[in-house]
């Protein structure tokens, strides 16, 4: 009896390894090996061509002394400060609008996803043209109000303008996540609240928002990850300027690795940036994640 159980366990064990084996091989090749290589690079001085030299923690010391690292960290915080409130508010509003739609709900939702799947390069060019000095937005503002906004050419405006673009791109995607969250909230809760005399505003603050917590946490996690990975928009539109106000981690990592031939230093910055985003995600979850039960 015992031996039969053992033999069954062995068969199950083999089956398990066989089924998960391809994934492990894939993960080892495409995640494990690059990760190990990333750590090796971060501890090295190399220019792609000459032999690699191990310099241990020198790249990390150099990084924390590099003013560009601190500029980029500050830019990332500024971007988050603009993007997360804008993205959350607009996508929740959009999701609530979707949930109220009687017809073509899916069509509207999918329409907003077009921005998300469109090419970053293409829409960056379109936005550059729309918001340029002699573009339609500024022409309208100048002709009707006599004002002119230096969207991408003023250090105080440039990051905000990029945040507007990124919000436009991701608003529809985040709204779909919120829509799923809204649909999961039982209608009875609203009916009961109405009977108790709660206004729509109270219902939103006391029912909708608390019960949307899992979706809010998910969107926050996605938004933080996105913030540390932003590249196409500033690269295409501002080149990191004016006065380095739109330099991002990804832009500096790319420039250091492939234009300044310092992949070791770039690897160090990517590890630190990943660590920062991971820490921020943990902090966010700790601060705002709540257990939600509908029953």
């Amino acid at each position: 009896m015992k031996s039969n159980v053992r033999s069954l366990e062995r068969v199950e064990n083999i089956k398990g390894w066989l089924l998960s084996g391809p994934y492990w091989i894939f993960a080892a090749i495409f995640f494990g090996y690059p990760f190990v290589w990333l750590v090796v690079l971060a501890l090295s001085k190399w220019n792609f061509i000459s032999p690699r030299e191990t310099i241990w923690l020198d790249n990390f010391i150099k990084l924390f002394r590099d003013p560009m690292f601190w500029t980029v960290t500050w830019n990332t915080i500024r971007f988050m400060f603009y993007f997360i409130p804008m993205g959350l508010t607009l996508s929740i509003a959009l999701a609530m609008a979707f949930s109220k739609a009687k017809r073509f709900k899916t069509f509207f939702a999918m329409s907003f996803l077009i921005a998300n799947v469109s090419s970053g390069v293409a829409y960056s060019i379109i936005f550059t043209q729309l918001f340029s000095t002699n573009g339609p937005v500024n022409n309208f503002l100048y002709d009707h109000f006599g004002v002119f906004i230096p969207w991408f050419s003023d250090p105080n405006w440039a990051m905000f303008s990029i945040a507007i673009m990124v919000t436009w791109k991701f608003m529809g995607y985040y709204a779909l996540i919120f829509l799923a969250g809204l649909q999961a909230i039982p209608k009875e809760l609203y009916e009961a609240a109405e009977i108790d005399g709660a206004t729509k505003w109270t219902q939103f603050w006391k029912i909708t928002l608390p019960l949307l917590n899992p979706s809010i946490v998910m969107v926050m996690v996605l938004a933080i990850t996105l913030t540390f990975g932003i590249f196409t928009e500033p690269f295409m539109i501002t080149g990191g300027g004016p006065l380095n106000s739109t330099q991002t981690f990804m832009m500096v990592i790319y420039t250091d690795a492939f234009l300044k031939y310092e992949p070791g230093y770039a690897a160090t910055m990517s590890i630190v940036a990943a660590g920062m985003s991971f820490a921020l995600i943990l902090l966010t979850r700790k601060l705002i994640e709540r257990k939600v039960e509908f029953a």
Binding site: T128, Q129, S132, T133, N134, G135, P150, F152, S153, D154, P242
Partner: peptide, 14 residues
């Protein structure tokens, strides 16, 4: 001159 001269400034006469 200006920091931002807009799209195709030469051809648009900007």
């Amino acid at each position: 001159t200006a920091v931002d001269l807009g799209n195709l400034p030469f051809y648009n006469g900007a």
